[in-house]
Each structure stands twice: as structure tokens, then as C-alpha cells.
Amino acid sequence: MITAQNLSKAYGKTTALQEVSLTIQAGELFGLIGPDGAGKTTLLRILGTLLLPDAGTAFLDGKPVVESYRAIRRAIGYMPGTFSLYQDLTVEENLHFFATIFGTSIAENYELIRDIYVQLEPFKNRRAGQLSGGMKQKLALCCALIHRPRILLLDEPTTGVDPVSREEFWAMLQRLKSHGITMLVSTPYMDEASLCDRVALMRDGQVLSTGSPQSLIEAFDRPLLAVQADDTYRMLTDLRQFESTYSAFAFGHAVHLSLKAPVWPELVQSYLLNLKHTGVSVTPIAPSIEDVFIHAE
């Protein structure tokens, strides 16, 4: 449904995308996971026909994004990263406006947005600017869906939204899958990766790896230890000197240590105790998507 081949884009001297290739199947819920500045927004804008790539090609539904941008614009729903509805129009006026400019009506496609819109209906006469963050995103999703697009491009829809609303939002996306809509969602939250069918991990304009969340975790084949001590920062520097260390990163109050080869946890513990660390605990753990991401080359 969506293919990107060696897409590159630079803003002046800053490289935003470097040879990115992706293939997304029809009906897939695909996640672009990566921190700010990874190139997610640039990629979405190129696919959404809003930016021209410097090099490479991309196809949506078999149509090239540069040449067939008019046809593609009719087939996609796009939700930009910033809240992009009219704050001084009410919920209903916003929805009506976007329905009309896409040549349809609320009634015609009410079926598709009903699940989401019922939550907004009590506030339909409230100005969009006065909605909570979660509500705003639901309204934006409604507006992006109102013309029944076959492809939905969502740029960080859950950024700045409370955890409960985030969960609800993802549940809505899951339900939209049953309507056969292909969705490409970008997010900086690693924990949201597990909610996607497949993900691409992005960093510095490059795709590190692609696959289902499960397969990415399974492909992580290095032993992983969670290490805690009273002085986390000194421990981190010490662990990086440890001979078997592959990489070590702070992870909340602990340090996640990936090893070149299996090592007894006690060996790590005694190494730290020798360096006069206190409160040391070492436990083997299963990797998460975040581990896959930060320990990736």
C-alpha cells in the first residue's frame, strides 16, 4: 500500500532523512518509532505529498507521491503533529468544515467516526481551543477520517496527551483496522510500539530495523542485565569500562547492560563491589522495544 525507496531529504546542511526504504501492507497499523529529530515528520510529509524528497521515490496505493499528488491527496487522511484545527470554531463546525472541503458530509461517513465522535458529542458546541489535549486529538482524528480515506498518516497523535487518553486513542486505531484503513503512525513513545502490527525504529534520519515488535525483540540476541546501585551515574561509567560490556544505558534508576557474551550476574556484582559501590543488585531481564532501540547500532 505504501512503499518508500531510498528517500533522502536535507534542510540546508541538516540531513533529515537518509536513504529510507519502507514497505507497508494494506490494512496494516504501522508504527514509526523514534525520538525527536529522527526524521519521522519529514517522512510523513513526503508520503503526504507535502514535501518533495531530494532523492528516492515513494508510492501510495501504487501512485508516485511527486507526480500523482492530487490523486493521493484525495485518498489519504493526514493529521499533522501540531493541533491543526480551528481553535475558534466549535467541535461541530470544525468537523462540518473538513467534511465539506473534502466533498462529503458528516452524515455520509458518520458510521466510520461514530465510536470516536460519541465521546465528543456532549461538547459539540464547545470551541475546539477549549478541549482537553486528548479530546483535541480525537477531534483531529475525526476530521482526518471524515472523508473515508484509505490511508491514514498520523504524526505523533499521542504526544502531549495523558496516558489514559493515549490508551483510548490506540484502541480507536485498532478498531479502525477493521474498516481496512492502512495506518502509518509516528510516536516517540517506545511502549506504544507493541500496539502496532509492525514498526520501523528510526534514529538520525535512518531506519535502524523493521519488523513486528515481537520479532524485533526476539532478534535481540545479547544477554541483558538490569543493574542498580546507590550512585547510578558513577556505576554507569564504571560499567562501560567492564571488559564484557557491549553497551550500557541508564534506564530510569537502573542501568541496562548488554553483554558481548553470557556472564554470571555475580561477576558483574563483584566487579562493582570491588569499585566500592553500595546497594548493588544485578538481575537478568528480557529486552523490551526500548532496549532494542537504544542498544542498536
Partner: peptide
């Protein structure tokens, strides 16, 4: 500035 232009451009208008 509001980002609504992005949506208008993507629309068939």
C-alpha cells in the same frame, strides 16, 4: 502557523 494550512493543502481544494 497553526498547521491548518497543511491540512488545507492535503485537501482536494
Amino acid at each position: 502557523e497553526l498547521g491548518t494550512m497543511e491540512v488545507l493543502l492535503v485537501s482536494p481544494l
